[in-house]
Design a protein around this nucleic acid. Structure first.
Lengths: 300, 300
DNA sequence: ACCCTGTGATACCCGCCGGGTATCACAGCC
DNA sequence: GGCTGTGATACCCGGCGGGTATCACAGGGT
């Protein structure tokens, strides 16, 4: 079984994503003719038609679609391999048998959604630092729902994730906490005076459309303003231009001009600690243990 | 970020597994000097010492250990990509938009532990075949606990797994059934007359050591005979030379010379249907739906 | 009808790098 | 001290990945 080189996968993924040889060539940093040839060779070697070249434009075949998904996963795994290897050697200089206490502190990269988890994160870091032989934790703020990609490609070793928003598929995880959701409104808005709200209450309010976040780089369609980070969002809410729905612990970053009202029918948000399934790090295991001890799911 | 070529990963994994350049070179099909050079280049490019060359023998550094694990995962992902791409094109000739009903039947490879699941499997295949638009299911018998590797490297698309024995880490899965375990003994053995047994009862019987299976290619230490498949095991039991512990449904393949006695304190065995986390196949989703409908976990 | 534009494919050349053989350097070991 | 077996080094060569120039062809403007 011949196995594809990552170069070939990079090339194909670029073409499959751009659906344009010229742009793809520029992206991977080669000229267009070699790219064309590489894809042709790849198709010959696989014995599979991956692209439908319909003069003026390229489209993926079903097999091409499969290779796009699988190839992305393989490339992530490859870059994860080099990242994690470098990191393993970084602090520990590469010597000393695995698991042996050689005095060097392991390092773990923890990905968290920027702006969330203020208190839970603080308690976790404090409690873990007190553990004997604790690794050094580097907190890596991630964009919206980007933790999954960070775990996959090795930028992070472990992540805190929010269940309905993040997908835990492909990772090991432990449940930490469950919380309700609140609506965050401009302080002066009529609804801000209510004790509780429902999703229906805030769904179609004229003049107060819910803000939209980019998902996988694109904004979902809708009337609300497009925001990239919480600061933008907070400002727009303070200005009375939009509203948003967040987990309860988002109260931590509320402004004076904000009002928070519990939502009775919003799905609960479950916080998990997640890590790559094949991880073998002892430091990671200790961190997970600390986390579950600190915040047992529900009342376990 | 330069990304390793799969060739380099193959080379390194070979050396890391063999801990011997000569044998590794033979395994990957090149001469030894190019292999040495490739590893040196790899270490230079990563800026990391992966191997400790201590004249007369090679050993892994901590970083090397990491790259071995991560590299295996990446290689599995790469070979899975080509296998699944070829399979996607196999039946469907590569044409027809994804998801479009183009008349060609999708094919799914289902990995099952050889010899297990007689009735559950039969019912599942029958029920699924009756579904409209069902894919063609190819049943792939796997060795002991080999289903995980088969899912990872693309030899299979979906698998039936036994919970305490298989690890579901890294896969999506749904629970199907739970069953107790039974001791399988020679029919004439004194213990075979008992109504129930405990693990302690059969643990240290003189002259009747429990058989040992290879785990990851090596046999765990112990007094029992080493067996590779169920036929060998069945014969040894019938001959009164050994005993074994199995899920209840193993009654299906009992011989006349066998006796089965329930174990009261053995951990229950949970059967799952599992698949790669990033799978997007509609046919697979239908199969999973059929399976959960057919065998709801406990009494859901 | 014309050319211009933009697409991907082809033709051709070149330099580099992966692979081979021959050999070395060194540590055990009879 | 020679023999064996290890990995590293030296050197050469062929193939292949990459570049430039060009082609073939479909639209679309006027």
């Amino acid at each position: 079984m011949e196995t594809l080189e990552t170069r070939e996968l990079r090339y194909f993924v670029a073409v499959a994503e751009e659906l344009h040889f010229g742009r793809a060539a520029e992206r991977v940093g080669v000229a267009q003719p070699p790219l064309s040839r590489a894809i042709q060779q790849l198709e010959r070697r696989l014995g599979v038609t991956l692209l439908e070249r319909d003069r003026r434009g390229v489209s993926l075949t079903a097999a091409g679609e499969v290779l796009l998904h699988e190839g992305r996963a393989a490339l992530d795994a490859a870059t994860a391999a080099v990242r994690r290897t470098r990191r393993a050697a970084g602090g520990a200089d590469g010597r000393g048998g695995p698991g042996g206490p050689d005095g060097s502190r392991e390092r773990l990269v923890l990905a968290v959604k920027a702006g969330a988890f203020h208190e839970l994160l603080q308690r976790l870091l404090d409690a873990y630092a007190a553990e004997p032989g604790a690794a050094e934790i580097e907190v890596l703020p991630s964009g919206t729902c980007e933790q999954e990609a960070m775990l996959r490609d090795g930028r992070a070793d472990v992540a805190l994730m929010h269940k309905p928003f993040n997908s835990l598929a492909g990772f090991d995880s432990e449940e930490l906490t469950t919380e309700g959701q609140i609506a965050i409104l401009p302080a002066g808005h009529p609804l801000a005076a209510r004790e509780t709200l429902t999703l229906a209450d805030i769904a179609g309010i004229p003049g107060l459309p819910l803000a939209r976040w980019p998902r996988n780089g694109v904004f979902p369609p809708g009337p609300g303003p497009e925001v990239d980070d919480q600061t933008q969002l907070a400002q727009l809410i303070a200005l009375g231009r939009t509203a948003a729905v967040f987990p309860e612990t988002a109260r931590a970053w509320l402004w004076a001009e904000h009002a928070a009202v519990p939502l009775t029918d919003a799905p609960p948000v479950v916080t998990h600690i997640a890590w790559p399934a094949h991880s073998r790090s002892l430091a990671l295991a200790a961190l997970v243990r600390t986390a579950t001890r600190l915040a047992p799911p529900a009342a376990a």
